[in-house]
Write a protein that binds this DNA or RNA. Structure first.
Lengths: 247, 247
DNA sequence: TAAGATATCGCAAAATATTGCATTCTTAAT
DNA sequence: ATTAAGAATGCAATATTTTGCGATATCTTA
């Protein structure tokens, strides 16, 4: 595995869990502790992470409460706003998890009607608290440090529902590999979400475009909308127009 | 767990409760008293907290409102503490929702092992975030203004599980009417929780004792433990001793 | 003042970091 | 193809940090 790949994975892990332990990275990446440490040193020198004894933290770690969503918030809010334009009263929606989805949940207007299925407790709470939407949370095992429900139970429940539109975040999207992710359990859930939805909207910050991971969620043909923080006409998005509507 | 994580949790606890006790942090974080003390010393050196004999205080008491609410929290914490004494490693637990239950969740030590089923997303997130317990969230409709999952889906899932012990909050308890509540959906969930549990622990603040509501959840015979903020010997509790263990 | 709880100190064990060096892998020039 | 320079990696020895424990001191409360 290349150095760059490793560092990318490390950054992903950190943005996902807000922290990493050196020895866990060691087994995850299949390299020695020394290499992990050298990677962490480099990332710290680049100002991307905060190194501490035993591992590393997200730079946003010390910002009180709900750290992660601060620096990229602008971009994510722009995406969430676009997502809102696809939503109409009375629709039945389905969402995955992730920070963008929580932003989306926060924007849902108080008087929206309809039904929202979700695998994310954070999304569920946010929407149920503030809006008149009927919120249904899908059951499952809540993995530590992850904020979505996974496991056979979720997949089986998803197989029983059919919704108008689903919203998915992603960790990788490209013309060749399609929608990709790295956590097996999460991929299973995403596949089930797609199967349960008539139309599929993918939300992705521009930085994830043209990146790939090991596991494929679906090919681009399956997707109906792509929402990014770029303008729809941006040339980075040109190649995607043949597959789905870029918003 | 990383040092920085511990310190962050300590700060959160302080901002939540205005104070922390060293020995409580000890079990909460799963480390020795010395380590807790050293963490507190460091935080004090950074000027973030005020260390005192036995624990630490918030430095800026910048929450000028509702001493009453804080006091109520004290009572609930006392109950949650008692609940913790019923929990052992390896147990399979099941909880309802409510503010006391969230307090309970916050106190679960980081190194507890076992499985926790819950209908409360707040409890699930709290426990999954911090501890090594296997957390399973039961699906259902999330009622606005309530933070627990309800509905046929939850009841049906509850019928498939069997746990060692469940914890339930309540809105009314009395010798005549038993455990009572006013929301039909919530009552259905509570009944299912009780049926799924070998033993039943009810948590109630003293103020709810001897109050009744329209719908019965169960009779007092079904209950195994009652946890209140009163001392077990308090004379308000005398009449309950014949039904279950008062803690 | 006595008893119990809490704090401090010194120390040893465990975990983690650092350093220097040998080996392997890339890359580019011959 | 071959080779040599340079980077990346793993390993072993050593240093540093973190942690828990016991003995002792100090504080709190009755």
């Amino acid at each position: 595995m290349l150095q760059e790949e490793r560092q990318k994975i490390i950054l992903e892990q950190i943005s996902l869990h807000h922290k990493v332990l050196s020895n866990e990275l060691c087994t995850l990446l299949g390299v020695s502790l020394d290499t992990v440490r050298r990677d962490l040193m480099e990332l710290e020198k680049e100002g991307k992470i905060l190194k501490v004894h035993g591992g590393a933290l997200a730079k946003t770690f010390h910002q009180p409460f709900q750290q992660a969503a601060v620096y990229a918030k602008e971009e994510k809010m722009r995406i969430a706003e676009k997502a809102l334009s696809l939503v109409q009263n009375g629709m039945t929606l389905l969402t995955g998890g992730g920070t963008i989805m929580v932003e989306f949940a926060k924007m849902i207007p108080a008087d929206l009607t309809g039904t929202l299925f979700t695998v994310s407790p954070l999304v569920a709470l946010e929407v149920a608290q503030r809006s008149s939407v009927n919120v249904i949370l899908l059951a499952g095992q809540l993995a530590p440090n992850s904020y979505i429900c996974t496991g056979a139970s979720v997949v089986s429940q998803l197989s029983e529902i059919h919704v108008d539109l689903c919203f998915l975040g992603t960790n990788g999207i490209s013309a060749e590999a399609g929608l990709t992710d790295y956590d097996w359990e999460i991929v299973q859930v995403k596949k089930a979400i797609i199967k349960a939805s008539r139309r599929v909207a993918v939300m992705s910050i521009a930085e994830k475009l043209e990146t790939n991971h090991k596991l494929q969620v679906c090919s681009l043909n399956t997707i109906d909308f792509l929402l990014t923080d770029l303008a729809p006409g941006d040339k980075k998005l040109e190649k995607y127009n043949q597959f789905f509507k870029v918003i």
